[in-house]
Design a protein around this nucleic acid. Structure first.
Lengths: 68, 68
DNA sequence: TGCAAATGTGTGGCATACTGCACTTTTGCA
DNA sequence: TGCAAAAGTGCAGTATGCCACACATTTGCA
């Protein structure tokens, strides 16, 4: 599951529109749309703003499954 | 543990210098240094390049611990 | 302890993430 | 089915991530 899917699903689970989430995080509506569409290339800080409000956390974990 | 610490520790565990990792990932030495210093604000694609070579994966998971 | 390897820093240019605005398209409910 | 809410798009300006180059500082080993 890609990060954009996680964000969109989590947002819907919380009953928020893109505009709601934009207001709550300070991430512009335009940028949020791009991220959820899988376009764009968000910075870590932008992802962190979204993660905080969505109750998510960003982790770098050791890859357990087969490479690539 | 912050992402920059994970990257640095993982790099050292694999016996790589910053220059090695820069060459292997295509992420410039300058950018890698900034990331490991905790300065800078890497894009998702830059983090993905590093994660791939370091055998790490980026995840957005539901925060289990107390908020904030 | 001296020295080479490794790491950190200043500067400047280019690419692009982020933003706001106006508009179009899609969605889903009365 | 009509319509308002929600989501997607084109465009243009600003901020900043990424990069190369040159140099300073720190590290750790012979």
């Amino acid at each position: 599951m890609d990060l954009d899917d996680v964000i969109r699903e989590r947002r819907k689970l919380l009953g928020l529109t893109q505009e709601d989430l934009s207001d709550m995080t300070g991430v512009s509506l335009r940028t949020l749309k791009e991220i959820e569409m899988g376009r764009g290339n968000p910075t870590l800080r932008t992802l962190e703003k979204l993660a905080l409000v969505l109750g998510l956390e960003i982790q770098l974990t050791v890859r357990k499954t087969a490479e690539q």
